[in-house]
Amino acid sequence: MANNSSHITDYKVLTRVLLVLMFLTFLTISVTSYNLAAFTVTIALLIAGVKSFLVLSYFMHLKYESLLLRILVSIVFVLFALIVLITFIDYSYR
């Protein structure tokens, strides 16, 4: 049955991903407790990006999904990045 040929993620993989996610959460908290000025936000967002990548890839199984779906998801994130970029350009040159 073609409907059930999807990848099965092992419990161990899921547990490991959770541990990494928790580690990254503590890392964000400890990094942001230091005042590194503008870098704090950048680092916090970078870590959030890594965390969301892990959730998307392993918990949401994107790693094992079709290329079409992976491209679609990437397009949404690129689209959002563009919206933010264009809005900020607009605001800074008014």
Partner: peptide, 29 residues
């Protein structure tokens, strides 16, 4: 089990959004 799969996807979305909400609302210095 596609309904379980889709329900799980929705739940992960909720988690995904929180991953960004937490640092942006709670951890800005």
């Amino acid at each position: 089990y596609v309904l379980l799969e889709n329900g799980a996807l929705y739940w992960h979305l909720v988690d995904l959004i929180w991953i960004f909400l937490f640092p942006l609302l709670y951890l800005i210095s």
